[in-house]
Amino acid sequence: MMEEEAVLCFPQLNTSCWKPKRPRSHSVLTYILLSCISLLTVTLNLLVIISISHFKQLHTSTNFLLLSLAVSDLLVGLIMLFEGMVIDGCWYLSDIMCTMYYVLQYIATCSSVGIMVLISVDRYVAICNPLHYSTKVSPRRVKILIPLCWICCMLFVSLQMKENLKQTGQFKSCVGECVIVFNMLEQVADLVLMFILPISVIVVLYVRVFAVALTQARAMRTLIMVASRQHSVGVTAKRGEVKAARTLGVVVAVFLLCVCPLYCVSLAGQDTLFDVSSASFVICLAYFNSCLNPLVYALFYPWFRKSVRLIVTLQILKPGSFESNILK
Results as ranks from 00 to 15, higher is better:
S112T: 11
F300M: 03
L148E: 07
S53R: 14
W303Q: 12
N45H: 09
T60Y: 13
S228F: 04
A245L: 00
F156E: 02
S120L: 03
G320H: 13
I316P: 00
I50T: 05
V42A: 07
C174A: 13
T41M: 12
S38Q: 02
V48A: 05
V235T: 02
M184S: 15
P302H: 09
V233Q: 11
F281H: 08
G89A: 05
N45I: 04
S53D: 00
A6I: 04
Y124R: 02
I107H: 06
Y101W: 11
F300C: 04
K143C: 05
F304Q: 12
Y206K: 09
K238V: 10
L58I: 08
I79W: 01
S278L: 14
Q170H: 12
V7F: 13
Q105C: 08
L74N: 04
G114I: 06
S53C: 10
C284T: 15
A126M: 05
N14I: 07
H132P: 00
C110S: 14
V252Y: 00
S138P: 02
L66W: 04
A108D: 00
S138N: 14
V117H: 10
N14M: 10
Q170V: 05
V265L: 07
R123E: 02
A286V: 03
L8I: 04
D275A: 14
L317C: 10
S228N: 15
